[in-house]
Write a protein that binds this DNA or RNA. Structure first.
Lengths: 126, 126
DNA sequence: CCGCATCCTATGGGATACTG
DNA sequence: CAGTATCCCATAGGATGCGG
């Protein structure tokens, strides 16, 4: 109890595990990545991220807001306008999230090649 | 223009989206993180990652192997010994994955605080 | 335009038991 | 030790329709 406050993602009940879990979500990662250049409106995000449903977007945004990673601003226009943006806390994430997304784009070829090699060997065993 | 066939994680059918999806998995992230210091045996990984089931571990390892991110080495001892390790490709990921895990550990307090504030406000509205 | 509510299916993932 | 195979349930998440 004295000096055990170091958090560890490998521990089952550590809050850090929970946080990592939130981040380990493709939709969340894509949303965060989409917000890195400034506030974006709901339907704009939705259009940017191909394939996301309105429900999932809504849910994910709310979770991220609850986590203090993004903020939600409502403008009383008619009809209403809502903008989502990264909070300062959220900004500390952009680099990392960006890195992950870029890794995916950069090494995709290698991954696809590896998959084909694997399947051609005995992975595709039937 | 020169290099426009750049893949885009925001595109629905882009392979990069698939790769990101693979990475956006808390178990995969934890496994990769656990392998960053060298080869580890199956049950050892399992013990290190609290709460992972043997089924999920097995599945995730296989996927990562298929993706060429980790390698699997079998030693014909009795009983058999199997070691998992990062491939060169996998090594290019460690920094990023590490960053994500560290972010979770470092900013967990802020996240938890944000959650409580959110719930105390109107998030907990019933 | 923003987003909640509902329905419904597919999948993730835990527990358990068995093989090489 | 290192898995594979089942069973089985909880949840994710798509589709659709309504309300502010």
């Amino acid at each position: 109890m004295t000096t055990q406050p170091i958090y560890d993602v490998f521990e089952n009940h550590c809050p850090a595990r929970m946080v990592l879990d939130r981040l380990a979500d493709k939709w969340a990662l894509l949303i965060l990545n989409g917000l890195k250049d400034g506030p974006v409106r709901f339907n704009s995000i939705r259009r940017n991220i191909k394939g996301i449903s309105q429900k999932v977007l809504s849910q994910t945004l709310k979770k991220l807001e609850r986590d203090g990673i993004i903020s939600r601003a409502v403008f009383p226009t008619v009809p209403v306008t809502v903008e989502y943006a990264l909070t300062p806390l959220g900004h500390t994430l952009t680099e990392t999230v960006d890195a992950l997304a870029h890794w995916a784009e950069d090494h995709m070829d290698s991954v696809v090649a590896a998959q084909q090699a694997y399947d051609a060997a005995d992975g595709g065993r039937v």
